[in-house]
């Protein structure tokens, strides 16, 4: 890990030397959130954060952990059903934003005869199917290629906890999870669902354990606890379960 990441402010040009060279298979450079391309070849930051580059994927983005969630296609999110229209549910990803649509038929095994009945305020784990800036974003609970739910759908029971967007990203990362949950999972059984929109749904069967786990996750987030500290926290939390 680099000792001190390059700190970017909005409007800072990124030196061509610090962008990935494109030596891998992918020849075109991919710009992630927080970067803007001005033709012919100027790349400027639009938010404050640290520059992240990935040589293998030939991609660059700005890493920041604040602000409101903006939907991107492919993100796994926890949506709150706000109401039902003719063909779809209106869902909220973050409060006070225009609703995203979740079609009635985008559930596993749903047909025109057997539509899912979701009352307002129920929680749905879904994938962002497409997110354009000019249209309301569209959600789906099935994999379009297989038609299976793959773990997506209605979240029953449990409680919802708010975490920062960076924390949600970190828990969903390919390397997988945080030490806290691995350590605790060895002792108690629980189910955790993480939404990219900064929401974590915890269901441990009883309220006490659920609360303890949820609050431990929030503590790891706010205090930025490293692995060793997480193990200690897990032991302390297990005493309360």
């Amino acid at each position: 890990m680099a000792a001190s990441p390059a700190v970017l402010l909005p409007g800072d040009d990124i030196a061509p030397g610090s962008l990935p060279k494109g030596t891998g298979k992918k020849k075109t450079l991919t710009l992630g959130p927080g970067l803007r391309h001005t033709p012919p070849d100027t790349v400027t930051a639009t938010v404050a954060g640290a520059l992240l580059t990935d040589n293998k994927k030939n991609a660059a983005s700005v890493d920041y952990n604040s602000g409101r969630y903006l939907p991107f296609a492919g993100d796994l999110v926890i949506a709150t059903v706000n109401g039902s229209a003719a063909e779809n549910f209106n869902c909220l990803l973050t409060p006070n934003t225009p609703p995203a649509t979740l079609p009635h038929l985008a559930f596993e095994g749903a047909t025109k005869k057997t539509r899912p009945q979701l009352p307002p305020n129920s929680l749905v784990y879904c994938r962002v199917a497409n997110a354009g800036k000019h249209l309301p974003s569209e959600l789906t609970c099935v994999d379009p290629s297989t038609g299976k739910g793959e773990g997506l759908g209605l979240l029953k029971g449990g409680m919802l906890f708010k975490v920062s967007l960076g924390m949600a990203r970190r828990m969903l990362a390919a390397k997988g999870g945080i030490t806290l949950l691995d350590t605790m999972g060895a002792k108690v059984g629980f189910e955790v669902t993480i939404g990219r929109n900064g929401l974590v749904h915890v269901d441990a069967g009883n309220v006490k354990t659920t609360l303890a786990i949820g609050q431990a996750i929030q503590e790891v987030d706010t205090a930025g606890i490293e692995e060793e500290g997480q193990r200690k926290l897990a032991v302390a939390t297990l005493k309360n379960c």
Binding site: V7, G49, G224
Partner: peptide
């Protein structure tokens, strides 16, 4: 001054990353 403020913000956000 503005850069130093942002640097502190980024360092706070990256704390967990440096610790691992």
């Amino acid at each position: 001054w503005l850069r130093s403020v942002v640097r502190r913000k980024v360092e706070g956000e990256q704390r967990w990353r440096r610790a691992t």
